[in-house]
């Protein structure tokens, strides 16, 4: 398929309960509400509310988005080994592949960037459930798909009141980790 030049595809994958659907929503809102771009977010639905495979695609474009799903992924986040195995084939040759190295032993691609999101969430944010926001901070830092400011505004407007500071910190933890990882790569 020939893509519109302005089209950018992100896939967040892992297992149910890791907060990836919310992360996808936040990314889409950051891109549209604050970034002024068109977005479509789709997700795979299974019968499981918790556990089971979980995947969300976010397509961001300056033009109209016809086909709503990702076909040739620019950024892939895998938060489990199973999702890394299943989805890395959809990633472009030069795409950005980020895995939670705490949960993924073998990304299957040399270019993958491993960051221990879940471990960072536990150690630096106090709870594993911040792993999605940590990851969001990292992939936005690595891909620059949305402005950092847009992301932070979106997250702060959407999280339960009282948790703003914790989420802001989680984003920053992700950004720092991404910078460190980039340093290692280069």
């Amino acid at each position: 398929m020939t893509k519109s030049s302005g089209r950018f595809e992100i896939r967040l994958s892992g297992s149910g309960g890791q907060g990836l659907m919310l992360a996808g929503k936040l990314l889409a809102e950051a891109a549209s509400v604050y970034g002024g771009k068109n977005t479509v977010q789709t997700q795979s639905y299974g019968p499981e509310a918790r556990g089971g495979k979980s995947k969300t695609d976010i397509v961001i474009s300056t033009e109209d988005i016809d086909y709503p799903k990702a076909t040739s992924v620019d950024v892939l986040l895998a938060m489990t080994q199973v999702s890394a195995d299943e989805y890395r084939h959809a990633l472009k040759e030069d795409g950005l592949f980020v895995v939670d190295s705490y949960l993924v032993d073998n990304p299957g691609r040399d270019s993958a960037i491993g960051i221990p999101f879940t471990l960072l969430a536990i150690e630096q944010c106090g709870r594993a459930l911040f792993a999605n926001v940590v990851a969001l901070g990292a992939i936005v830092e690595l891909s620059k798909v949305v402005e950092w400011d847009s992301l932070e505004k979106t997250v702060l407007s959407r999280v339960p009141s009282g948790t703003e500071e914790a989420n802001k910190k989680a984003l920053a933890v992700g950004r720092e980790a991404a910078r460190r990882a980039m340093g290692k790569v280069s």
Partner: peptide, 9 residues
């Protein structure tokens, strides 16, 4: 289902 469940700007 695609239209019902997808989120779009």
């Amino acid at each position: 289902e695609v239209i019902g469940h997808m989120r779009e700007s």
